[in-house]
Design a protein around this nucleic acid. Sequence first.
DNA 1: GGCGCAAGTTGACTTTGATCAACTGGATGC
DNA 2: GCATCCAGTTGATCAAAGTCAACTTGCGCC
Lengths: 251, 251
Amino acid sequence: MAIDSQVIDIHELRNSCATCALNESCLPSAIGSRDLALLDDMAKRRRPVERGGFLFREGDRHNALFVVRSGAIKVSTTLSEGDAQVLGFHLPGEILGLDGVAEERHQATAEALEDSTVCEVPFARLSQIAAQIPALQREIYRIVSREYVREQRHPVMMGRKHALTRLALFLHSVSERRRAQELDPQRFHLSMSRQDLANYLGLVIETVSRAFSRLQTLGIIDVDRRRVCILDADALDQLANSEGADLRAIA
Amino acid sequence: MAIDSQVIDIHELRNSCATCALNESCLPSAIGSRDLALLDDMAKRRRPVERGGFLFREGDRHNALFVVRSGAIKVSTTLSEGDAQVLGFHLPGEILGLDGVAEERHQATAEALEDSTVCEVPFARLSQIAAQIPALQREIYRIVSREYVREQRHPVMMGRKHALTRLALFLHSVSERRRAQELDPQRFHLSMSRQDLANYLGLVIETVSRAFSRLQTLGIIDVDRRRVCILDADALDQLANSEGADLRAIA
DNA sequence: GGCGCAAGTTGACTTTGATCAACTGGATGC
DNA sequence: GCATCCAGTTGATCAAAGTCAACTTGCGCC
């Protein structure tokens, strides 16, 4: 616990958390080096998850929050009938695991759609430390609120009357989220199957497929299997924001 | 600050928070009478809101969380096109205002659908007090998580392929939420317009109207304008949980 | 009372997406 | 190399929801 080692901790943390959603204010500002030592072993707990692997499953005991560092995680829940509802896709920089705090058991299942790495943050330890660092506590509130608001975008997307606008909104969202992480917002690989995407959007797989084709025909995107390239971002935005409206105009 | 007055505070709080979502563990357990005095002036801030009145609007500075004590509050957000998306209806015992924490400004608008009373909890003060009372802090995490999970039910409902199952799921949800507050789960008044409900469910008003009529024809509910009586709760549940399936069977 | 308005219902028709089915094109394995 | 398999695409048909329009009902107001 010498002062020197704490200085090293700071640098190490700043590096390791460069793309971390917790980063924004919990590290750069407000936290003294004495406190950083406390956060140290949490931030270090990086963990690889291979494609198809689970971060947690419905009913699992809740221990930790996860931050996606690379890859993509699908979150879904089982409906009473037995089939699944996809609740979201978490990309780098995004958090998951908030669903388990209330009941101390996860209400959803988190599966890696591709080989990914996540940062596991033991929840008990986090709240313990946060209790001693007001700035960190505030940041936790902010992060949770952000995730809460993010959840609300899902129904906004599903509320769209047309399959084309739902898909446009989804692609727009992925693009923006990538931009926020300084990844290429124009060209990217969709790691989810058409089936998962259809489920997420409240459509069937064939409709999603047709919507992709249509966007391509319109010259708005270029798509090859899961590889997507946004050719006309303006048109995509316009389409995403054209609630209902007359699609025949752009047919 | 005599000890007697604090004892009075306890009784008063227990009464005033009888239907409060914060109630469950923040008051009955874990909190000593010394701490109760701190919570006192927050819990007391009850406030009437008349029908059509706003708790907050999109863009408003975020100061407080609200707990509905009576009435009903509609939460909606403005889409880029200008029209609104209804994100939810908050009934007694439910919380709103979490959307404003992240950006310190509300991301949605909260409007009373009928004359209501809410308990306003200044957020800064709450977190201040929570920092001193670990049990309260834990409870806040739980409440937030619960609200997060609640948000996820909206897309689950909208993911249903048929209007009838969406409405059934909604009515089921209202019924259960009323039951949780020890209100009549069979008979109730829907305070939202068909327009708001349609928007919430991702349908148009005519489709909602027809779905109501159909549920009545099927003998599952009795409906007169906004007055609803659930006649066959089992059938309603069954319908609500029959993902897609063949509706012709029950036509 | 009756006029006018807003909310909701019902009907006729159109459009969209779901369904069913055939097909394509990579990737894997023998 | 070829067979197989799976994900995804495309086409034809059908049913459900959207659209447009007329109509009813309840309610406030003059």
